[in-house]
Nucleic acid binder design. Structure first.
Length: 504
RNA sequence: CGGGGCGUGGUGUAACGGCUAACAUGCUUGCUUUGGGAGCAAGUGACUCCGGGUUCGAAUCCCGGCGCCCCGACCA
């Protein structure tokens, strides 16, 4: 392993952050040492996933095996999102993964958008199939074909369906969690009577994603609308949630589409309206995927490994025992179990690590896995009625009273959650730049920033900017400040700023 | 599909064309240890990616495959 500092070929920034004693991989320590972010961001990302034991590539190129530690995070995400969806009347259902090829061909933009990345089954049961079956890249087509049978009158609306599923998109270049051939996601699909209602629903779901990102994952996000060239294939409007990663690149965290009547017309999703006339439904679809786990890593993790916000952590508190001799063993373990039961009563997720190995080894392991709070319990603590508490986010260590452990830990978990969010907000603020000249634009994009700049709305100019700088318009933000200006590239008049960045 | 890099025990690496392919780590057993990655001892483990060629002799040089990683194009 080279000791030299590497720069990414695309010139993107290697974020700074916490300093770490390891300036290179120390091979004498095995494979658990993480490449610092400042040295090689891609390698750091993969190292964190490996160190936290979250996922690995499968024998089939581009596919990902999600290991229990990684999957636990996904399960928590599902739980949190499901609760939010259900509050708004959405119900879960499941549709098959095989889609007749002709379904996909019904909506012109949709086929064109997905054609390059679909996988098709042509043979089954030892025979060539009469009609090829597409492995769903998304379920609009198969669901809406069904919806057309389910919906008769306005009384059947709104129809609010969500499904948790896997989808297949034959991507050229995989990246664990961020882009894999098969990934897990949630896709919501709704049908409404009016355009207004559909638009409100698309915005409402986007708001749920924002709430989830910020409140649970502690990831600050920017909400907005995609430009024509960036919107979903077949959508009328695509709303999105964008987050900024530690290398300054943008990650599309989630999307919500107002589909208009495009699909309704293609799939005959009609209903008898209040005025006794047949009308096409107004539809939405919205989704988030296992990609969020990548976003979680790239927002909070550091050079020691994963850092999990308490609200998403599968294990919030780990109690590590420190045992010097056999006489103390039972006493210490009994105390650990007692403390654990107190914490569990308060709904805190605790794990006891009483393995008979040296303490340092345990500490490092739980740090790599991102557990927010570690409690150490040894002979000294037993004597003093204390526990030693370490925070994952700040590294801060304090001795706390065993009597107050529940309150102290609960407060600390809250503090960690808040601190991670505040830290991410501060970082984003640092990376957001407002520019008015092309020179500054190029400079700030090169430096890996989010750039607020004027753009006239010309798709050709948008493409040209992408060509020259690799930056794309992440969104036209909802909180766009309306002001007169001129397009950063073309000089044409513009009424407001949009957000540019390089993205994943 | 282009550009770059790399294929050696489970993992990370070393070896000028030349002894039995080395070192670290892991794993197994035993003893000793335990408040930040322990120590000692014994053991385990590789047709050096595959196929051809050059040579007295190939992990090493040449040709051809295959595979992996990184960077682009495509995308959530």
């Amino acid at each position: 392993m080279s000791n030299e500092t590497k720069t990414n070929a695309d010139g993107s920034i290697n974020a700074g952050g916490d300093t770490n004693n390891n300036t290179k991989k120390d091979v004498s320590k095995g494979s658990n040492i993480i490449t610092p972010r400042s040295q090689d961001y891609s390698e750091w990302y993969l190292d964190v996933i490996k160190a936290a034991d979250m996922a690995e590539y499968s024998p089939v190129k581009g596919c990902m095996i999600i290991k229990p530690t990684g999957y636990a995070i996904w399960e928590n995400m599902q739980k949190e999102l499901d609760a939010r969806f259900k509050e708004t009347g959405v119900e879960n259902a499941y549709f098959p993964m095989f889609i007749p090829e002709r379904f996909l061909n019904k909506e012109k933009e949709h086929v064109e958008g997905f054609a390059p990345e679909i996988a098709v089954v042509t043979h089954a049961g030892g025979k060539k199939l009469d009609e090829p079956l597409v492995l769903r890249p998304t379920s609009e087509t198969i669901m809406y074909d069904t919806f057309s049978h389910w919906i008769q009158s306005y009384r059947d609306l709104p129809l609010l369906i969500n499904q948790w599923a896997n989808v297949i998109r034959w991507e050229m270049r995989p990246r664990l969690f961020l882009r894999t051939v098969e990934f897990l996601w949630q896709e919501g699909h709704t049908v409404h009577e009016t355009e207004k209602e559909a638009d409100e629903r698309a915005r409402e779901m986007l708001e749920i994603y924002r709430d989830f990102a910020e409140e649970v994952l502690a990831i600050p996000v920017i909400l907005g609308v995609k430009t024509e060239s960036e919107k979903f294939a077949g959508a009328f409007k695509t709303y999105c949630v964008e987050a900024i990663m530690q290398d300054g690149k943008a990650l599309q965290f989630g999307t919500s589409h107002h589909l208009g009547q495009n699909f309704a017309k293609a799939f005959d999703v009609k209903f008898l309206g209040r005025e006794n006339t047949m009308e096409y439904g107004w539809q939405t679809s919205w989704g988030v995927s296992t990609r969020m786990i990548g976003g979680l890593i790239m927002t909070h993790a550091d050079d020691k490994g994963l850092v999990l916000p308490p609200k998403i952590a599968g294990v919030q508190v780990v109690i590590t025992t420190i045992i010097n001799n056999d006489e103390d063993r039972d006493l210490i373990i009994a105390k650990a179990q007692e403390v654990s039961s107190w914490l569990k009563e308060e709904g805190i997720k605790v794990k006891i690590d009483s393995r008979d190995i040296r303490p340092g080894e345990k500490f490092y392991e739980w740090e790599r896995k991102g557990v927010p709070v570690r409690l150490e319990l040894g002979k000294k603590d037993l004597a003093n009625n204390t526990l030693f508490m370490a925070r994952r986010d700040t590294g801060e260590k304090t001795s706390i009273s065993a009597d107050d452990v529940v309150v102290t830990v609960a407060n600390t978990l809250e503090a960690i959650q808040a601190n991670l969010y505040d830290r991410a907000v501060a970082y984003r603020k640092e990376k957001e730049k407002v520019v008015d000249t092309w020179e500054d634009f190029v400079k700030e994009i090169e430096a890996g920033n989010f750039v607020h700049a004027h753009w006239s709305g010309d798709a050709g100019v948008e493409a040209q900017i992408k060509e020259e700088t690799a930056a794309t318009i992440r969104c036209i933000p909802f909180d766009q400040k309306m002001e007169d200006g001129v397009c950063i590239k073309s000089g044409k008049p513009s009424k407001g700023r949009v957000v540019f960045a390089k993205s994943y």
